[in-house]
Design a protein around this nucleic acid. Structure first.
Lengths: 229, 229
DNA sequence: CTTTTTGCACTGACTGGTCAGTTCAAGAGG
DNA sequence: CCTCTTGAACTGACCAGTCAGTGCAAAAAG
């Protein structure tokens, strides 16, 4: 009788683990939608289980508590976002584009991400500035993870002389982040028919400074009608 | 058993109920902080009453339900914000400033408002894009009320030739709104020591287009007390 | 090959606690 | 005396977390 052996049974790694992973994924999906719609506290574990098509006990088999489920969800989500932004910046860099072009590409990537995972985004916005919650430190980490990707590119741009040294890097990064976040949520909520390129162009224009004074288009990004790169 | 007829009795409408108004104000204040910290669902009516220093029965004497208390809170708050933004824009107009100057002043007013009522702001952000809530229509109204003040000024600026006709008015208004919102929350949460003028200058700079390309400052706003950084 | 054992993954009824909302008799205050 | 507030007790719904038990596939035993 080899009972439960210490060290988490190697055999179970491939066969059983797959089933479990699938269940966890279903639970993530169910939870993200419900929590985005209703908020954390008014979403019940029963609802999550029902939407995921599993029994309530399964939730507790896979996650220590409702809180833990939520925290893991946050972590998982922000990794996807950060990877997506980083990837957009890297692709531009590989093609020899400027840092400002990279920023523009990140805006596009951010918009795309939000359009793909609107519920996740709503959830971040709703929880990000709350205090007195148990998962507060997780939230801090999550925010830092996302904003720092943007801040890094801005920093490089300043170092390379592309951007003015006067700008406040962390504040600008978070303002940029917020601009995309809120514009995207509004786009999804109130004008869902518009194309991503359309929205992207509007935001680029805002940043090109064409809003507060008429210069003609500079180099970066704002080709307004076309080119879904 | 002549019960209380809990609900908005007509008599209470007009008579200058100083006492009652004071109680309601205390309840608003208590509720806004608690809900911003913990969210609506996990804030209990007992907590609100305790923080306000009144009995639970008083809450229900003054508001039909927890939901109604919250809705009235939202309405009251947005009126203050809209008035504050409108006022900033009007003052600039009276002094003969441009519409772009007015926008800049509104950014400043927005920052100031958020620094005065951080809890209220957190609460809006947390609830604004949620769906499936009973007070959803209230929230829509609230958002519209705030964003339209900004949109109106932008529209005037476009009509007067100050801004390009290419810009997308509603989207730009909400992007601007979001930029200020998120930047301000970050300021309050992570760099509370910075002065409002400092933050304001950073945002103005972002909009002057100095971020994405080096033009020298246009006309509007970025005078600010010389940002260190 | 067949039977038995093992243990992972899952189930769902149940429990103990929490909380919105009610009720009311007894004041406070103006 | 009329409006407003108090405080405490009560109800009934709702919900996070528990636990004894089921199903099943693969390994071990025969």
């Amino acid at each position: 009788m080899s009972r439960h052996t210490a060290g988490g049974t190697i055999a179970s790694m491939d066969s059983s683990n797959t089933r479990r992973e699938a269940t966890r994924r279903k639970l993530f999906e169910a939870a993200v939608t419900l929590i985005a719609e209703q908020g954390f506290s008014s979403t019940t574990v029963d609802e999550i289980a029902e939407r995921a098509g599993v029994a309530k006990g399964t939730v507790y088999y896979n996650f220590a508590s409702k809180n833990v489920l939520f925290e893991e969800l946050l972590r998982h989500g922000v990794e996807m976002l950060a990877a997506s932004l980083q990837n957009a910046a890297d692709e531009v860099a590989e093609r020899g584009g400027s840092r400002v072009d990279a920023l523009d590409a990140m805006i596009h990537a951010g918009l795309y991400f939000i359009s793909q995972y609107p519920a996740l985004t709503q959830l971040y916005v709703a929880e990000l500035w709350r205090t007195n919650r148990t998962w507060n430190s997780t939230l801090m980490m999550v925010r830092e993870r996302a904003v720092s990707v943007v801040a890094d590119v801005i920093r490089d741009a300043v170092a390379g002389g592309e951007l003015s040294e006067e700008i406040d890097i962390p504040l600008t990064a978070s303002a940029l982040f917020g601009m995309v976040l809120v514009a995207a949520l509004d786009w999804q909520s109130f004008q869902p028919d518009r194309s991503i390129d359309d929205v992207h162009a509007a935001l680029s224009r805002l940043l090109q400074g064409r809003v507060s004074g008429r210069q003609h288009a500079g180099g970066a990004g704002a080709e307004a009608g076309a080119g879904p790169s």
